[in-house]
Nucleic acid binder design. Structure first.
Lengths: 193, 193
DNA sequence: GTCTATATACAGATAGAC
DNA sequence: GTCTATCTGTATATAGAC
């Protein structure tokens, strides 16, 4: 890996962990094994470095989503495996943590570029998710758009919860909310009552 | 309002907006109308100030939850109004924004105190929510605990979404995910199929 | 309790030698 | 492309006068 990539990767990790203001270029340089001024040979300044990380994360997350969708089987089990894959990516990969932190709390001066990049990301997501939703046997009471909205809410809830619950509890909560979601969107067979 | 309270309130707002490292005591002092060293007459240092804000937010959020639960009517409509009230509090009040930011991304050195405080908070929440869940006519397929887990997931999803969607879209998404949630947890009447 | 003045540390960024 | 040296600004925090 060349120096620029090392800086990028280290910056990603530090920004995700300590926040933009909490991360110093000195720390990044030390971890990479260079001196601080050398960073400026690869990136114009701290803001430009941050923006480069944003773009990298966008590409990386998109790729992960595509992989998860491709390897998924069909209908319900497929959707579940896609969501699980995404939730795990967001909680485990440093790219995922970075994504979560800065879509929610972008540094003031960089909010614009962050928002534009990640909003574009969600549009691309929609295109990938809708066909999967279509393969489900939806309840006649629920439209595709409602199912998609509820799906994002589910995923957003999961990703938040990975930030502050232990792994065991996260898994339990995912199963429960997944079950309720599927009960809510699925075509009902009359089960007595 | 006395000086200590002014500092506390201003710190809450600045921390919520700019993050811990991104907030300087100088800014806080200016906004309060005093000089920076005066802050140290009321709080030992920046960390102590932050901890005081955490405690304040805990008390404030708990109070909001109690108020929402007390004024709610019964069963389904009641639960909906409670959740709406909480989601609005989290998205509109500065206390809510602070809560969201630091339960998700506490500054490294203060993670312990943040986690202890907010975990205590959730235990108290459970005690308040369970009776409300009990008043619903739950589907025989869903346990109380599952419904509660799914409920928190719903609320977590909503609160995240208030951070990056416009108000209109937030409302649409809430309605959709609420509908799917209620479909999922409610006792089914056989509607043909 | 509030201030001015200051100590100390470290941040981002640049100049210029190699 | 990397370094040493340095500029400049600003951060937290304290000492001590009023």
């Amino acid at each position: 890996m060349n120096t620029a990539d090392s800086i990028l990767q280290t910056a990603l990790s530090e920004f995700a962990e300590r926040g933009y203001s909490g991360t110093s270029l000195n720390t990044i340089a030390n971890e990479v094994g260079i001196k601080k001024p050398s960073i400026y040979n690869h990136f114009k300044n701290k803001e430009a470095l941050f923006e480069a990380v944003v773009k990298k994360v966008y590409v990386d997350y998109m790729q992960t989503l595509k992989i998860e969708i491709d390897k998924a089987p069909s209908a319900e089990a497929g959707l579940k495996s896609i969501l699980w894959g995404l939730a795990n990516y967001l909680s485990d990969a440093e790219e995922g943590k970075f994504y979560m932190r800065y879509i929610l709390f972008p540094p003031e001066a960089l909010a614009d570029v962050v928002n534009r990049t990640f909003m574009q990301f969600e549009e691309d997501c929609n295109k990938l998710f809708l066909p999967v939703i279509n393969r489900l046997e939806l309840s006649p009471d629920v439209t595709d758009e409602e199912a998609l909205d509820a799906l994002y809410c589910l995923l957003d809830g999961w990703t938040v919860q990975t930030l502050y619950y232990s792994h065991d509890i996260v898994l339990r909560k995912r199963e429960a909310s997944w079950k309720v979601f599927m009960e809510g969107v699925s075509r009902k067979e009359s089960k007595g009552s």
